[in-house]
Design a protein around this nucleic acid. Structure first.
Lengths: 148, 148
DNA sequence: GCGTGCATACTCGGATATAAGCTGTCCGAGTAGAGGGGG
DNA sequence: CCCCCTCTACTCGGACAGCTTATATCCGAGTATGCACGC
């Protein structure tokens, strides 16, 4: 189980955008963090598709937060980049092989799938408890005013 | 973020092994669940390396649980297959690029890394709250006596 | 009848191909802004 | 002096390679069992 590195980049970018008054181009965000420009652009595009940030084209264009930072949770950013599909996917092997259960006994979800789903729910709940505004408050944003 | 399918196989196998009195060969476990024999053997080997199951060689050999089912948690199985490395790895991009922070300000962990670590801790705690014995009690193990 | 040795068949374990997804890069379509020209 | 047009430069967006990881498979080393033989 590995989370895309783009998640880290995206969260950092959202924190920066929360402090910006004007749209920030993807290339600028890339050099601010020292990462690949084109690859970061890919992730920012995903954030835009998810409705978290708003793109503006043309000269002086760039990205801006679609909502106030306090209404964007870390979970939303993670799911925008990583997708909303659960990490554990039950393949219903209880219905396969020699000891296959009949379908009428499989109306309810598999006990194993339940445990994994509960764990992922705990994970999501934890991520949903922090917003970009919370991160901006904890991180040092003093230098942002110089460069934005 | 995607969890290996071997995790699901391994948990099912542990539940079966908890009901078995004799060692069960990997090939038998594979046909019980209708999965690839050789690939399952790879995962069972990982479980053995983690100390969760004990292999016995030679004729009538196979795998048996190393401890009673109540002392094997789902988390241990997941970590044995998927590894113990966290899904999110902070690459310290706060120290890179134009707005790089000086090292003396990075003695503490990054706020983003903290949030992700907390979420993963909640995920692990949830998985650690269920044992193989709990799963065996919830799943229907009536047909196991016939085939073991 | 009992102990010993051997052959055998079965087990696990590691080394080897194949496919998928993440990582990284490039170029093209579209647009907001600036500048120049005309009224 | 003001308005309009064009041109440009800059933006995002999607299409294209490289690489690590997961998936699937095969064959070889090692061993407990069962049988046959000898005592």
């Amino acid at each position: 189980m590995k989370l895309s590195a783009g998640v880290e980049w995206s969260i950092h970018c959202c924190v920066v955008l929360s402090q910006a008054e004007q749209p920030v181009p993807s290339a600028r965000l890339a050099e601010l963090h020292g990462v690949s420009k084109a690859y970061l652009a890919k992730h920012l595009h995903q954030l835009a598709r998810a409705g978290l940030i708003l793109p503006s084209e043309g000269r002086d264009g760039g990205y801006a937060l679609a909502r106030v930072a306090g209404e964007i949770t870390v979970l939303q950013v993670v799911q925008a980049i990583d997708g909303e599909r659960p990490a554990f996917r039950c393949t219903e092997i209880r219905q396969q092989g020699v000891l296959a259960q009949p379908p009428e006994k499989c109306l309810e979800a598999c006990g194993i799938a339940k445990v994994m789903a509960d764990a992922e729910r705990a994970w999501r709940d934890s991520l949903a408890g922090t917003t970009i505004a919370d991160l901006a408050a904890s991180l040092d944003t003093s230098r942002l005013d110089e460069v934005l």
